[in-house]
Each structure stands twice: as structure tokens, then as C-alpha cells.
């Protein structure tokens, strides 16, 4: 066999030296035990990984292959790029892509900045940490359908409480989700409200994992708070911040519930993203090929992001 398929136990960083010493003194029967153990290990790994592999093959691989094939098939059955040409030239495609980019970036940026600032503020809090963090995570626990509906109720232009309160202070409130030029901003705000707690929780945990000494040292050496934050804290938290950012970005990229519940992509095309368009193509216009073609685009974006995240978390863990 060209490839070495033996399943050896992975060794952690501290182990190799002990191992080599042990190997040197290892009696013979021990070595024999090891080779049978390695065969044992191979079978063991197979037993452990088989159930999930079967589940994934059934759940994911087949649909993915099907989607890719469907995306490259014309309605007459031959291979073609027609579906891609069709989605790119379909009316409003540019706007849908722009909406997706704006939604993803704005929602990510807002929730990340709020989450970071709140986590940083918690560092100055003595009493009440538990209280604040308990409340600040609530929106995330709320079902997106429920928060979408609640916000629609509050932001209803005619009867909603937000515009009523604005009127009290003399401001004529906008139409929020019902008005083409404010709808996208509205769904972005709702999504950011919902997921700020996600960023907050992870970054807060990151702050708590920091060693105190470098921070104290920096402050004693006369660094301002801003300098400490920029030159000590952020570099130390780099990986955690990146992971948070990427996760949040992917979630915003595939956001469905909020937009679907609040605007269904409207008014007009104001809040239509790639995911919403793909959904409508499949379930309203019954164009599965178009959905598949958009799906392939989404798939590529997903793969690119996943690689980066996987490397980052893997690094943290190992």
C-alpha cells in the first residue's frame, strides 16, 4: 500500500519526548501489543465515524450533487450554463447582490461593534455582571420569527409604538419596513439587534480569558486605555475576534427568517437577498434550476468562508 493508512494515536505537543524515552526501554511484548492495538484503533475509528458518515452521505452529499447537476442542466436536459446566464441577466440581479452585500456587511459590523463595546464595558463593571450578561443575551434566545413579528408590530407606521413615541417628541417617523428606502435598514437593524448578543457573549468570554498582567503592565507603563485596547487587548484576542466576525458574517449571509417574516423581500425588491430570491424561485415561481444555480453561488461563498474558520478554530483548540 502506498499510503500509510495506519491509525496511530495523535500525540500532543508535550508527549513526544516521554514517548521516545519510553520506546527506548520498551520490552518486546509491549511492542507486539502496540501493533495489535493499532489494528484495533483502525477498527475503532471506523466504528466511531461510520454512523455519521452514513448520515451525512444521505443528508448532504446526495442533495449537493443533485443541486450542482441541476444547476448545470438546461430545461431540455443537456449540459449548459444557461441557468447562470439567466440569473445574472434576470431583472434586479444586481440589486439582489448589492442587498446581500449590504445586509451581510452592515448587520455583521453593527452587531460586532455593539457586541465588542458591551463586552469591553463589562470590564469596568464590578457588581451586576451576571445581571447585565443575562439580559444582554435574551434577544438571541428569542425565536427569530417572534422577534421579527414583534418588531413589525412595534414599527408599524400607522399603529406602532415606535412612531407613536417619536411623534411625542415631534418627529414624523418613517415607514420603516413598508417603505422602499428604509426597509433594508430596518431589517438590518432587527437582525443586528437579534445577533449582537452572539458577538457580545463570545467576546466577553474572550476578555475574561485574558491574563491580567500584560494589561496592568501596559497601564502602569503609562499607556492610555485606548492604547492598551489597540495594542495589547485586540492583538491578544485576534483569533477570537476573527472567529466571531466570520461566524456572524456567515449567519448574516444566509439570513432568512427575519427578512421572510418582516418583508418577504419587499417592498418591491428593497430587501431581497440571494437566499430570499432562491427561496422565491423555488417555492413561488417553481424554478428549481434557478434556485440550484443560486445555490451553487452560495455554496462557493460558503466553502471559502468555512476553510478560514476551520483553520482558525482548529488552531485555537490544538
Amino acid at each position: 500500500m502506498a499510503k500509510d493508512l495506519s491509525l496511530k494515536m495523535t500525540t500532543s505537543a508535550s508527549e513526544p519526548r516521554e514517548r521516545s524515552v519510553a520506546q527506548f526501554f520498551r520490552p518486546r511484548h509491549f511492542a507486539r501489543h502496540r501493533s495489535s492495538a493499532s489494528r484495533d484503533m483502525r477498527r475503532f475509528a471506523l466504528i466511531l465515524t461510520l454512523p455519521l458518515t452514513v448520515v451525512l452521505l444521505a443528508l448532504l452529499i446526495y442533495p449537493l450533487i443533485y443541486t450542482i447537476i441541476l444547476a448545470f442542466t438546461s430545461d431540455k436536459g443537456g449540459a449548459s450554463l444557461g441557468n447562470f446566464i439567466a440569473i445574472v441577466t434576470a431583472s434586479g440581479f444586481a440589486q439582489v447582490v448589492t442587498n446581500t452585500l449590504i445586509f451581510t456587511c452592515a448587520s455583521t459590523a453593527i452587531s460586532f461593534l455593539f457586541g465588542f463595546s458591551l463586552a469591553y464595558a463589562m470590564e469596568f463593571v464590578g457588581a451586576g455582571r451576571r445581571f447585565f450578561s443575562s439580559i444582554l443575551i435574551l434577544p438571541m434566545a428569542l425565536m427569530p420569527v417572534v422577534s421579527g413579528l414583534t418588531w413589525s408590530m412595534m414599527l408599524n407606521p400607522a399603529l406602532g409604538v415606535v412612531n407613536a413615541l417619536l411623534r411625542v417628541v415631534g418627529v414624523h417617523g418613517p415607514g420603516w419596513a413598508t417603505q422602499a428606502d428604509t426597509a433594508l435598514a430596518t431589517v438590518i437593524l432587527i437582525d443586528a439587534w437579534q445577533w449582537t448578543p452572539f458577538c457580545f457573549l463570545i467576546i466577553h468570554a474572550g476578555f475574561q480569558s485574558l491574563a491580567r498582567e500584560p494589561l496592568e503592565a501596559a497601564l502602569i507603563d503609562g499607556a492610555t486605555r485606548w492604547q492598551t485596547l489597540r495594542m495589547v487587548i485586540i492583538p491578544l484576542l485576534r483569533n477570537i475576534l476573527l472567529v466571531t466576525l466570520l461566524f456572524r458574517m456567515m449567519d448574516a449571509f444566509k439570513a432568512f427568517d427575519t427578512i421572510f417574516v418582516v418583508t418577504k423581500g419587499g417592498p418591491g425588491r428593497a430587501t431581497e437577498t440571494l437566499v430570499i430570491r432562491a427561496f422565491m424561485q423555488a417555492f413561488q415561481f417553481y424554478e428549481p434550476r434557478t434556485t440550484a444555480a443560486i445555490g451553487v453561488l452560495l455554496l462557493i461563498a460558503t466553502m471559502l468562508a468555512t476553510r478560514r474558520i476551520g483553520d482558525l478554530i482548529g488552531q485555537e483548540v490544538e
Partner: peptide, 16 residues
């Protein structure tokens, strides 16, 4: 690959 299942928008696989 397992990680990508979390990232993948469900719309990609729903039709099949």
C-alpha cells in the same frame, strides 16, 4: 466538511 454544514444556507439543498 462538518463545519460547512453549519455555514451552508439550507436553500442550497432544499429542492433535492
Amino acid at each position: 466538511f462538518i463545519l460547512s454544514t453549519k455555514m451552508l444556507p439550507a436553500i442550497v439543498i432544499i429542492v433535492p
